[in-house]
Design a protein around this nucleic acid. Structure first.
Lengths: 121, 121
DNA sequence: TTTTCATATGAGCATATGTTCATATGTTTG
DNA sequence: CAAACATATGAACATATGCTCATATGAAAA
């Protein structure tokens, strides 16, 4: 690491102090940082992404999701639980089935931004 | 799971067919889904989020990042590698130090959307 | 050229995560 | 009420991930 004296790290004492000040002012609370990371973690799995893309098009029951995505009902159900806990989807019961749909439009926006980024080059 | 005959799952044969059709048309390619998940995975760690928040404010060297975030140079360096591989940050050498900065503004937008979502309720 | 400093990186370890399997819950139908 | 169906969930297992430690790389200074 840098030098024995941390305060003089990189021989930039002044910039260092200023940085600390700015960062302390703008850095969100620990809990918000944690929640943010948790939220993005939810988007960080291709199965959940695929579920969301289906729900972009329609309100769908667990059974149909499993069939369309060619996955186990159990696997889908586990992932839907995570999506719901993070308020990305909501559900309602219709007879024996439970239909899932997008909770709000942040989901679309976040994924759209992500696509823009990866399609950049 | 639902019924013995998958095609008649949930007794909604018609909706099922239509769903499949729509999903096949709008679902991105496997590679894009994978890349999207990979990208969001990068945002899904609070250390990397914290690094990004520092870089929102200034171009900073590894050493200062480690100090400001109170973490090991090694840990920060490993995370910077991931951020750079995914083109969220770029770097340049100045003497012995290497300064990191945001690669583009998608990063700000994606995180802003994430914050909006979690601050909703 | 030999130190010294700043950063990068590989191996190892502990923890987190996704899927499967078995089973529980809850609703409808006979 | 019992059977059938749709979904949820806990345990177990394999893989992925973040941090630490030791060390390598690369540039500047002695």
């Amino acid at each position: 690491m840098c030098g024995k004296n941390e305060a003089e790290c990189c021989e930039q004492v002044e910039i260092h102090e200023e940085l600390l000040k700015i960062v302390n002012e703008t850095m969100p609370e620990e809990t918000e940082l944690y929640d943010l990371a948790e939220l993005f973690k939810v988007f960080g799995d291709s199965t959940r992404i695929r579920i969301l893309f289906v729900l972009f098009e329609a309100e769908v029951c667990v059974c149909d999701l499993a069939h369309v995505l060619n996955m186990t009902q159990s696997a889908i159900s586990h992932q839907l639980r995570i999506l719901k806990q993070n308020k990305l989807v909501k559900n309602r019961r219709v007879g024996k089935s439970i239909f899932y749909s997008l909770a709000d439009d942040h989901v679309r926006l976040i994924i759209a931004q992500g696509r823009e980024h990866i399609e950049e080059d």
